[in-house]
């Protein structure tokens, strides 16, 4: 079974086994026998062997964090990013306010207005990261893939003001090329197209 298959196989009980628990000794004699058995059986020594071998093998798993970092899963829910359209550089956010509505810790706020073309634009967008629980609902609900969870997880700050305004999260125009189209949290599933019923068009 590959890793994914194993993950999708929810019938895990086949791998379960029952731990044998011997009945608790009742008479002093039984107790004594148990002690002898447990002491003379090399349980304790096996423990010592395992730890010693581990030490000698020197198979170290430590990641020295600030120097080394683990790659983050695409579905990791880090600091939010507001994305732009790759072609035009326009903000993707249309100011629908669904993220504001769905946010269960009530930390998203959005100000909108019509722009000179009569489109709705968000003038300001803020997430109070002091309150955000990174549940990912906002990214999940966003119809435009405008807000996504980034990979950044180092978000300690000394200033409350740094939790966080639109310009902090929005892809800067000069970094548009570095913006990654998001396969992770909140993105449509690969089979999404198939699930949609097509609307007839008269063109």
């Amino acid at each position: 079974m590959s890793g994914l298959e194993q993950f999708q196989d929810r019938n895990v009980s086949q791998n379960y086994y029952r731990v044998k628990i011997e009945p608790y000794p009742k008479t002093p004699w039984e107790k004594f026998k148990r002690v002898v058995r447990k002491s003379l059986k090399p349980d304790l020594l096996i423990g010592l062997k395992i730890t010693l071998l581990e030490m000698l093998r020197f198979n170290i798993h430590t990641i020295q964090y600030p120097k080394e970092k683990l790659p983050v899963s695409p579905r990791f829910r880090g600091i939010h990013r507001l994305l732009r359209l790759l072609e035009s550089g326009n903000e993707r956010c249309i100011g629908c306010g669904l993220c504001e509505k769905i946010c269960i810790s009530n930390c998203i706020r959005i100000d909108t207005k019509p722009d000179e073309n009569g489109r709705k634009i968000p003038t300001e967008y803020t997430i109070n990261f002091g309150r955000c629980i990174f549940c990912g609902y906002c990214a999940e609900v966003c119809p435009e893939l405008a807000i996504v969870h980034g990979q950044e997880y180092e978000y300690a700050s000394e200033q409350r003001a740094q939790f966080a305004m639109k310009e902090d999260m929005l892809t800067p125009l000069d970094k548009l090329k570095e913006q990654k189209e998001y396969p992770g949290f909140g993105a449509p599933t690969p089979a999404a197209d198939k699930l949609i019923k097509k609307t007839p068009l008269a063109y």
Partner: peptide, 13 residues
């Protein structure tokens, strides 16, 4: 250090 090595860690570094 010894505890760390036995537990596949590095200990103070």
């Amino acid at each position: 250090k010894v505890l760390a090595f036995m537990q596949r860690r590095l200990g103070p570094m």
